[in-house]
Design a protein around this nucleic acid. Structure first.
Lengths: 289, 289
DNA sequence: GTTCCGCATGAATCGATAG
DNA sequence: ACTATCGATTCATGCGGAA
């Protein structure tokens, strides 16, 4: 956590952006945030030409030019040993995959980011439909960028049990399950964890199996809580600070708070910001574990 | 199948490259093959296979320059409505993913190829190992390129059993499904319902779950027969002709032959070519998977 | 208190039709 | 010609109500 000394008392105090939601465009807010402030940035920006009703839609050919200045700000406000997770998938244009995501990766490297890894999010419940030249798109990229070769990573926090759970390990860790078990006299999930003690655990791979959330949120992006939760556990410790510059209905902030991490959320649509506030109001600190 | 008229008898005959293995480098063989000859090209070039020690090793920075002239030949020998499946994954260089695969995709588009789709091959049993900054790499790209917007695709050949949910749902068709279909399709109400009743197979997605083959062949490639077999069933019919310009131990040829397709294989290492011949000798035409 | 079961919905894409 | 809109197609999941 970044702590600022109070100008009057000289005592360190919380920065004003900690656990705060900004109902404004991130191009307006990011420049106001100080350098090296965040341990992790997790976001799912508007995909090109998608969600055009709420975000106006960026043309695929303009996507890199639109994103690059924001990425420069993100690089500035990220701590040197922090990570930036970008969830994105290119859309089909004229029957073929557009290359703007590939171009974005290379442009971010030109900007000084390191393309450390590409995680594969396998969406078990992808959009239905049938076309003569392709199948349903069932995966998205979670691009992992860092500022330096060395960065913080807490692999033990996301270890999974071996055996029958291996196939659906991440589903087993979905936030919904955890909340449900928590609500049942608090014995559900904790008990399961204690059952796992003594069994062998293994590290996961770079393929994540998670279903999208199709209801409950009035936001069109199907970003499940378990996705930012996984990266938050992997790249931060309790008390760290997580930024989502395209917060939407607050999924990243909810994940952070339930895992005892602080958040900063930016969302230019006031309606979504209100939804996020409501969700956070009913999310107890530390409820996720 | 391409059939050439015999210069002596005038009767059509099999082309000389049908069901043939070439123990030579593909840059030597490809120029000898005629235009528009193959229905499908499936290959896993060096690097995706981690065969670099046997191929002399192409430096990542030289990869596109090395591959591009070969791709031009591949485009020439592929039928206009054929497909080119390139199984590849970029290496980690100096702690980050190298961009040569991204650059290759864009260079192939410059060459006239269409980047129609990117299938995700999820390797259920990936290599073990542990690193401080990344997890095991459990997926590879299967890039789908075509010459034109329209191409051959036989989706019914790779349908998969429907999920467990269907048992309860199809037992009693819901009224709202009918309403929804009716509202959208207008008169298509009865037809839609009858389409679902009795359906036990669905179309797959663009994520393939296949385990790698370990230590079965003396070749180091972890390219399972099921991977080319899936694309062969999807993009060709019986009697069609499949090319693998980096054949290795003959996995693509074995898959083709067992599925009643013809093959042409190119492999510059004579030892691998011998292994491929042995495998093909014990693979019956139409023996299945 | 479990389990079962009905049901709405989703970062989609293509082809035809209209301007 | 070239762009914008619209209808058709399709399947896995979590939630809530019922047994």
């Amino acid at each position: 956590m970044l702590l600022l000394p109070s100008p009057e008392t000289g005592v360190t105090q919380e920065p004003p952006f900690r656990d705060r939601l900004y109902a404004d465009a991130c191009e307006n807010i990011l420049p106001t945030l100080p350098n090296d402030s965040f341990d992790l940035i997790v976001t799912s920006p508007p995909y090109a030409d998608r969600r055009r009703h709420t975000y106006g839609g960026i043309a695929p050919d303009d996507y890199v030019r639109w994103f690059l200045p924001l990425a420069a700000e993100l690089k500035r406000v990220l701590k040197p040993d922090g990570s930036f997770i970008l969830n994105i998938k290119e859309r089909v244009v004229d029957g073929e995959r557009h290359t703007y995501v590939l171009e974005l990766i290379m442009a971010l490297r030109q900007q000084g980011w390191r393309w450390t890894e590409e995680y594969c999010w396998h969406k078990k419940n992808c959009y239905p439909g049938k076309w003569p030249n392709r199948f349903r798109d069932s995966w998205e990229r979670c691009l992992h960028f860092t500022r330096h070769k060395d960065f913080k990573m807490y692999q033990e926090a996301v270890m999974v049990p071996v055996g029958e759970w291996a196939g659906s390990r991440l589903k087993a860790l979905s936030a919904t399950d955890k909340i449900r078990d928590e609500s049942r006299a608090g014995s559900g999930f904790g008990k399961n964890v204690s059952n796992w003690v003594g069994r062998d655990k293994v590290y996961p791979t770079n393929v994540l199996h998670m279903a999208t959330e199709v209801s409950n949120q009035r936001h069109s992006a199907a970003f499940p809580v378990s996705l930012p939760a996984w990266f938050i556990q992997l790249f931060t410790r309790e008390g760290d600070l997580v930024l989502d510059p395209f917060m939407g209905s607050g999924t990243t902030a909810v994940a952070a708070r339930s895992l005892c991490r602080h958040y900063t959320g930016i969302e230019k649509e006031a309606d979504y910001c209100d939804i996020a506030r409501q969700r956070l109001a009913t999310t107890a600190w530390g409820s996720g574990l």
